[in-house]
Design a protein around this nucleic acid. Structure first.
Lengths: 351, 351
DNA sequence: CTGAAAGCGCTTACAG
DNA sequence: CTGAAAGCGCTTACAG
């Protein structure tokens, strides 16, 4: 059905080589001839076959992008950035989701390989490391976004996890909290341990203890986080603040707090991570670490593009997050009056 | 770099035709030979070239999926459904975003055409109709998700828009509201006029007037919706309830309400549309029409698959939404006591 | 400037 | 069962 270079060659009375050259603006073809051929091509609705071209050029102008799930709003923003840059540079995006299923991960690798994608962006946090080593056998450039597998790959673009939670924890400490919990992820993610590390560092610098019961393991999702923190929040030995692995986890904590009739931030201050678009609409709005999500996608694709051009490129790029203070954090109840009176009454010294 | 059928033919001491057949489990090849060849292929990391295969079979086993933006959480869930079904059936998804830019839409069509995708799912609401007619020239099956261009295409999967807002409006009326506004979209979307129609029908059935000032035009987004409703909500002539085109619009209304210190649902009841995942976490949680988002994606891809197989398929499939009543709707203030006392005190008759 | 030729890596009638 | 041949739609040295 689709018309080929051959038929437009006949129509134009030239060889198909000439048509090919004319259509690709080869300097060999005089512009008059080229225009004539292009016109005929256009009139007949000619569209070059990328697949035929790829066979000879050995380039598909396609990149593979893997995420665990594109329903995850974080991934959506990231992929949006990737896709825009890719498209601007004439690359198509082949999107695959692993759903965190090992068999799906395997299929994705196979599929990328068979399609001969020129490069890959792994834009997801939960891919198994077995999978990663398969990917590395593909012999195409790979960029990891928020790298969870340090050392396995050379190129990555990540958020500065540790500084993020460090800033969040410092913020809580400066409000007067000293009983602060950390609600992490249970999959042993690199990002989780980095975030935990930032938390710990701030705590130890302030010489604050973190009892083991204050270190919770969720799963990065709302329900998992809720389950992970319920017992602690229901106990007499409650923290006054909690630093969460991400916003979805924070949402789970808010659910439990509502359930236990704990007031936020009066009884419990909460900090998230990511700054997903809806966090400012929560009641109270969530204090969180903003990740430049789209930017992460843009930079990853730009890095991949550089690699594709054979340019030497930054190996590991790290972007900074930003603490966004909103209503979910405030001074702990016991210290509220001190803080207020200290502010209103300048002759009162706070401890 | 990638090994070809030819070299494994040499290795196995057979012709490349035999290798091709063995690898594709042709019944012509005895299983012993086939196994031997497969083993060699595996040992040498052979991976068939989808591009070479596509050139001869005229099938790419790839489908194009267009959305305006994959950062939109609604689209994320939809595409997740599409991708899962596609992958299960051996199809890859080429994702393109139009960003509602005409020049991008044009590029997307070109790109799908050059890549010779086997079919297309248009999973987005805001594609220009010029673009749609370009798409229809592609001569591949096209499925429209939440079809905005009735008549232009034969195959679509949609939510029942009118029944959704009809149910939402009935719900408000049954709570005692009679001053109900509709906040729509300004792009002349089919879904918007259908949703408005459902609203209108419920109102006229209840013999309730809808003053023109109560018909607002947003843009389906938070800020646009906020802007569209601010003046009305700030006036003395305020509605007691508002039916929104979608959840993001409802979010904008909530912003304005908070700003004007209107209490929800006491001063204003709000209904959304979509049931995005965060709506249940809002304060108050949002009453909305749930769209089966993933299901819409799944069905669309299944429909496309059927078309690809040449099966006669449903032309226009319509899925039903579901009213999810949450805290953002209640009886209007003036009637609250009546409603309560009518409930508590069975000898009191409400009007 | 232009064309004939070779080749990219496969699939699939066709002949044996 | 197996191989030689043709062909999918391009690009690009090579020769003129």
């Amino acid at each position: 059905m689709a018309i080929s270079i051959k038929v437009i060659a006949q129509l134009a009375g030239v060889s198909h080589s000439t048509v090919s050259r004319a259509l690709r603006d080869s300097p060999l073809i005089p512009s008059a001839t080229a225009e004539r051929i292009k016109l005929i091509a256009k009139q007949h609705g000619y569209s070059a076959s990328a697949v035929a071209r790829s066979l000879v050029t050995k380039r598909t102008q396609a990149v593979g992008v893997v995420v665990t799930s594109i329903a995850d709003p974080f991934n959506g923003e990231v992929v949006d950035g990737i896709e825009q840059v890719a498209n601007q540079h004439g690359y198509s995006v082949i999107l695959a989701t692993s759903q965190a299923l090992p068999e799906r991960e395997l299929m994705v690798v196979r599929s990328f390989q068979e399609r001969r994608v020129d490069g890959i962006v792994v834009a997801s946090s939960r891919l198994g490391s077995h999978y990663m080593s398969l990917l590395s056998e593909l012999e195409v450039p790979i960029v990891l976004l928020n790298n969870q597998h340090p050392g396995m790959f050379v190129h990555s673009v990540s958020i500065d996890n540790a500084s993020g939670t460090y800033a969040a924890t410092r913020h809580l400490i400066s409000l007067g909290h000293n009983r602060i919990a950390y609600l992490g992820d249970q999959l042993g993610l690199e990002s989780d341990s980095e975030r935990f590390h930032g938390f710990q560092q701030a705590m130890s610098e302030a010489q604050l203890e973190v009892p083991v019961e204050f270190i919770l393991k969720g799963d990065g999702k709302r329900e998992g986080a809720a389950q992970a923190c319920r017992a602690l929040l229901d106990s007499g030995d409650r923290p006054t603040a909690i630093v969460c692995y991400n916003d979805m986890s924070a949402l789970g904590v808010m659910d439990v707090a509502a359930n236990l009739e704990l007031s936020i931030p009066l009884d419990l201050s909460i900090v998230g991570f990511d700054d997903l678009f809806f966090t400012s609409a929560l009641q109270p709005p969530l204090t969180t670490i903003r990740q430049p999500k789209k930017e992460l996608g843009v930079r990853s694709m730009e890095l991949l593009l550089a690699l594709l051009k054979g340019e030497a490129a930054d190996k590991h790029e790290v972007l900074q997050g930003e603490l966004v203070v909103r209503g979910s954090t405030d001074a702990p109840k016991g210290r509220t009056y001190q803080a207020i009176s200290a502010g209103k009454n300048s002759d009162t010294r706070s401890s």
